[in-house]
């Protein structure tokens, strides 16, 4: 039952009696990919869990009206990304007066004390460098470097041209390499 295609799951979802079952299948199919997308943006597991659940609640609400203007996964990925960015903005608002950099430093401090972070010194330095990137470059870098998403998929999710994404990724890798060299990792 878990090998159903997106179309088959959506068809099942249209049947009121099967709605919950179909949705559970959808959650199981995409939970991990969405989790890691969110986790790389907000870093802590607790925050990721909260945002992921919000994402799925929004997917449930929007699924009735979902039309195949984009792929189901791309649409869900976009919701997850927007939810994560909104979370960061709200966090910044809560700590009024904090600049972008300070919020990122706070995220990093949380990461170091997070019991679900198991990285060595080099991995921590890499996360520090990623956090120093502008928001868009950070998203592009995470999607390409860790998840190896296709530029066409990223283009749909981030609503940016493939050319601009390639340029963003190039700039991001150069900046990270420079930062790592500075820290002599």
């Amino acid at each position: 039952m878990n090998n159903l295609s997106d179309e088959e799951i959506l068809q099942l979802f249209q049947d009121k009696k099967m709605q919950s079952k179909a949705f559970a299948m959808l959650v199981q199919k995409y939970q991990e990919r969405l989790y890691w997308q969110i986790r790389k943006i907000v870093l802590s597991h607790e925050d990721t869990d909260d945002i992921l659940q919000n994402t799925f609640v929004k997917v449930w609400k929007g699924l009735q009206n979902f039309r195949y203007d984009s792929q189901l996964f791309t649409w869900m990925f976009r919701i997850a990304t927007n939810e994560s960015l909104t979370f960061l903005k709200e966090k910044q608002k809560k700590h009024l007066g904090y600049s972008n950099g300070e919020v990122e430093e706070m995220l990093l401090a949380n990461l170091e004390s997070d019991e679900y972070f198991d990285g060595d010194k080099a991995q921590l330095e890499l996360q520090k460098a990623i956090l120093k990137l502008p928001e868009k470059q950070r998203l592009v870098f995470n999607m390409k470097y860790f998840d190896d998403l296709k530029y066409t998929e990223m283009s749909e999710i981030l609503d940016t041209s493939v050319g601009a994404l390639k340029a963003s990724y190039h700039h991001a890798t150069k900046k990270i390499e420079t930062l790592l060299k500075l820290n002599e990792v």
């Binding site: 989790y35 890691w36 986790r39 870093l43 597991h45 679900y116 972070f117 198991d118 990285g119 060595d120 991995q123 921590l124 996360q127 470097y145 860790f146």
Partner: peptide, 8 residues
């Protein structure tokens, strides 16, 4: 490229 993050 190993993920340094863990999940409960």
């Amino acid at each position: 490229k190993e993920s340094p993050f863990k999940v409960p």
